[in-house]
Amino acid sequence: MKFAGAMTRVFTACAIVFALASCERPPAPRGQGLWSYWSTDMTPVKITFKRMEPVPGVKLPPDMVIPRAYIKFALPYKWPTPKTMPDVATDVDALVLFLAHDTGEPLAIAERRIANSDPDGVDRRLYAYFNVYYAPTKREPGFTQYEKPPPRPEAWKPGMPVDEDGIVRVESPNGLYKISGCKVSGGEPPRPTLFCAYYARITPRITVGANFADYRAMGGLPFAERVLSVIKKKLCEFSDCSN
């Protein structure tokens, strides 16, 4: 599985898994294995992101309060110690969440429902995993390259031109985003089980790098817009989106 191999390469240096012993542990989607914290526990975790220039002695309020069931990774909390995600996670420099984008539920909770459409595991068309970048902690690399993208509200069609680097840049009501990793200018044909990479500015302080089904096989750009809207709605439940 291509996306699993990519995630393994990204996180090889920080081999993380969180297993919550106090609740039921459903099977993780194919390709996740020991690389994912996988829990149905909905108790909250207070997340404070690492600052580039911390002020000594200053205790920061949490940037996000997120149910454990959404969390896939939360560095620097590493496997195998501790195995249970703490109630307060500070100096987090990488946060990755799992979400069933048809309802916004944590994937671990939605797994049984959406697995019915795929006898071999969770239907890849219905879930997303995404990195959360919180300013001033870090910004998605190259984000300034698409500050002023051309509007592309229509669905993708075979032969539709993309930018010279093969990336689709989109201006939308939910912020700016770009799409890569789909080989949109040729190569592998569109299919729902191919995960594309979507980079979006959700709020002035929060950007995400999301991975979910190939928009070209799911109705075009309106599909990507809908999934990003679900992600934005959830993140705004977990954090202050007003600034």
Score class of each variant (00 low, 15 high):
Pro67Asp: 02
Ala94Ser: 13
Phe98Pro: 02
Asp91Glu: 15
Ala74Pro: 03
Leu75His: 13
Asp91Trp: 09
Asp87Gln: 09
Pro106Glu: 06
Ala94Ile: 13
Ala100Leu: 05
Lys72Trp: 03
Asp93Tyr: 15
Leu95Met: 10
Ala74Ser: 04
Tyr70Trp: 07
Thr84Ile: 14
Leu97Glu: 00
Tyr70Leu: 05
Val88Thr: 06
Pro67Gln: 00
Ala89Trp: 12
Asp91His: 14
Ile71Thr: 01
Gly104Ser: 06
Val88His: 01
Ala89Ile: 09
Ala110Gln: 11
His101Gln: 11
Pro76Leu: 14
Phe73Asp: 02
Asp102Ala: 10
Asp102Gln: 08
Ala110Thr: 03
His101Asn: 09
Asp87Gly: 00
Thr103Gly: 08
Thr103Pro: 10
Pro82Gln: 13
Thr81Ser: 14
Asp102Lys: 06
Lys78Asp: 07
Thr84Asn: 13
Val88Cys: 02
Asp91Leu: 08
Thr103Tyr: 09
Gly104Asp: 01
Pro67Val: 02
Trp79His: 15
Leu97Met: 13
Phe98Trp: 12
Trp79Leu: 10
Leu95Val: 10
Tyr77Ser: 04
Leu107Phe: 02
Val88Ser: 04
Ala89Met: 15
Lys78Arg: 15
Glu105Pro: 04
Ala100Glu: 10
Ala89Ser: 07
Gly104Met: 04
Ala89Thr: 01
Pro67Trp: 11
Ala108Gln: 06
Asp91Lys: 14
Leu99Pro: 05
Val96Met: 05
Val92Asn: 01
Lys83Ala: 12
Asp102Met: 08
His101Arg: 02
Ile71Val: 13
Arg68His: 06
Met85Leu: 15
Pro67Ala: 00
Leu107Ala: 09
Thr103Leu: 00
Leu75Gln: 13
Leu107Lys: 03
Gly104Tyr: 01
Ala100Val: 06
Pro106Ile: 04
Ala69Thr: 04
Pro86Ser: 00
Asp87Lys: 06
Lys83Tyr: 08
Met85Lys: 03
Ala100Gln: 11
Pro82Met: 11
Ile109Ala: 12
Ala69Gly: 07
Leu97Phe: 10
Pro80Lys: 07
Leu97Ile: 07
Asp87Leu: 08
